[in-house]
Design a protein around this nucleic acid. Structure first.
Length: 240
DNA sequence: CTTGACCTAAACATAG
DNA sequence: CCTATGTTTAGGTCAA
């Protein structure tokens, strides 16, 4: 059992632009050998245009978040909860990191959509997150939905079933959608190393399975994404 | 045309 | 045994 204590690769092939670099596989960012990218300003840039965070913002995120050291999963900070994932930071050098959240408008078009009901937990840290018409499929990737669900929970960790419930409650499209999307949710949770599985406490063994949380490395940047999302995406994925 | 990212379906294993 | 959960693989679409 390991405790999700992550450290950056000791020798990144990419000279970091600022202290600490995180390996990304995303194409919009500067890529170096080995699939790493250096982070000129921020781990995140937005998809429509290569809009990066301002230097001040990026520095703020960097200095105030675990990004600079990537020491632990968000859900485990200061809690010493064993994590079931065998992940280490080098695992983020693949397709499973939340860096895809900033790609192809996965979280877009946030501000152009109609917000039906506020999400109290999110409101404190994230601007209004509009919802699409109830009958249409949300323009969010499953990873985005999972992130929002977990972020909106009081403990910032949820069992799979509660993630289902959150999605259904906030995106009525899934009330009537066939059950395949649940498979996709589980698939995303399992595949994405940006989500961590936590052993459920035996004493509170209500329900099956584990709890899921978001890795700390990405949460600050993801929240920043949500707060700085452009008003519209010129290239929304037509399929979603 | 190739590549990367994401969605969907399905098979399989495991736990309650 | 059934159901829910978790993992893995494969195929498809789309944008860059």
């Amino acid at each position: 059992m390991e405790n999700c204590s992550h450290t950056l690769p000791p020798s990144s092939p990419c000279p970091p632009t600022f202290e600490g670099s995180i390996p990304f596989s995303s194409s919009p960012l500067q890529t170096c050998s080995g699939g790493h990218v250096s982070l000129p300003l921020s781990p995140i840039s937005f998809p429509p245009s290569p809009t990066s965070l301002s230097p001040a913002t990026a520095e703020s995120i960097h200095s105030s978040s675990p990004l600079s050291h990537c020491t632990a999963s968000y859900c485990l900070e200061g809690q010493n909860i064993p994590c079931l994932s065998p992940a280490n930071i080098s695992d983020q050098d693949d397709l499973t990191c939340l860096n895809w959240l900033h790609q192809r408008g996965n979280l877009l078009p946030l501000k152009s959509l109609h917000k039906m009901t506020p999400l109290p937990q999110l409101e404190s840290s994230v601007p209004i997150r509009p919802l699409p018409p109830a009958s249409s499929k949300p323009p969010y990737s499953f990873g985005s939905l999972i992130f929002m669900a977990i972020e909106d929970s009081s403990e910032r960790r949820l069992p799979v079933k509660d993630i289902y419930d959150w999605i259904v409650n906030n995106f009525p499209y899934y009330q009537t959608a066939s059950g395949g999307w649940r498979n996709s949710v589980r698939h995303n949770l399992s595949l994405s190393k940006s989500f961590r599985r936590i052993q459920r406490d035996k004493s509170q063994s209500v329900g099956k399975g584990s709890l899921w949380c978001v890795c700390s490395e990405y949460r600050p940047a993801l929240l920043e994404i949500l707060s700085l999302m452009p008003s519209s995406s010129p290239h929304p994925h037509p399929k979603y």
